[in-house]
Nucleic acid binder design. Sequence first.
DNA 1: GTCGTTCATAAGAGTTGACTTATATAAGCG
DNA 2: CGCTTATATAAGTCAACTCTTATGAACGAC
Lengths: 125, 125
Amino acid sequence: MHAFDVLGDPVRRRILELLAGGELSSGEVTTVIRREYGISQPAVSQHLRVLRDSGFTTVRAEGTRRLYAVDPTPLREVDVWLERFRGFWENRLDALATELARGRRRRRDPDPPATPPAPTRDEQT
Amino acid sequence: MHAFDVLGDPVRRRILELLAGGELSSGEVTTVIRREYGISQPAVSQHLRVLRDSGFTTVRAEGTRRLYAVDPTPLREVDVWLERFRGFWENRLDALATELARGRRRRRDPDPPATPPAPTRDEQT
DNA sequence: GTCGTTCATAAGAGTTGACTTATATAAGCG
DNA sequence: CGCTTATATAAGTCAACTCTTATGAACGAC
């Protein structure tokens, strides 16, 4: 499954947002997703599988728990693809400032707290 | 249809790559895509429709031809979403250099010549 | 060992999406 | 006007994706 296909699903995007805040167990992810999208535990597990299989996450076992974390590799690929279009909206002269701002923000706040988003499923269409 | 869903299809990504090189008519796009993916004219037209309807392109009529061009708006949204993950692979100290390199390249070559890609359809799965 | 957790997989249903062929619309040209 | 070119739409088929419920496997506590 291609990276963009994986990101096509709002639930998977949301899971990645959650993981952007740091490692979470399958159960913790499931709790949030169930609440926000009203889908079953197996459904969430299947999404986690897709993310795992396509390289978006790593997993490690801790007892009976499975701890998921973001693996940025495929996201970087997406970013690279996007690269060629950046000229359409990025003002060359502003680029430096943007980049500096980004760097500065990062240093203050290394783990951006995943913007609380789309509580319902209707985003999909 | 969500931006990521639109980009989920390799044909549509390829069309955008082609349009990144500048305005093209429906027919010109169709010629390339037919050759590379072996699909019919209506199939290409339908992809163009999706791109149009979801805001990825603008169209203008010139006689009987329809000239398509990239509208970056949804791509920027994708870029914004990606933003929160950039810290995973972007070395803060290198960021400035990267940005400068990008700017310099752009100035030399304002329309990057869409990397010749995926000639077959098997990329899809 | 047995019971409760935590998580994954299996099998099946419903929906969506991406093609196909056939056809419509509309402009350009003789 | 009729013919050709350029492009879009219609209708139908087939495959893929995302759920559901049911169940399995592994660990921890007792």
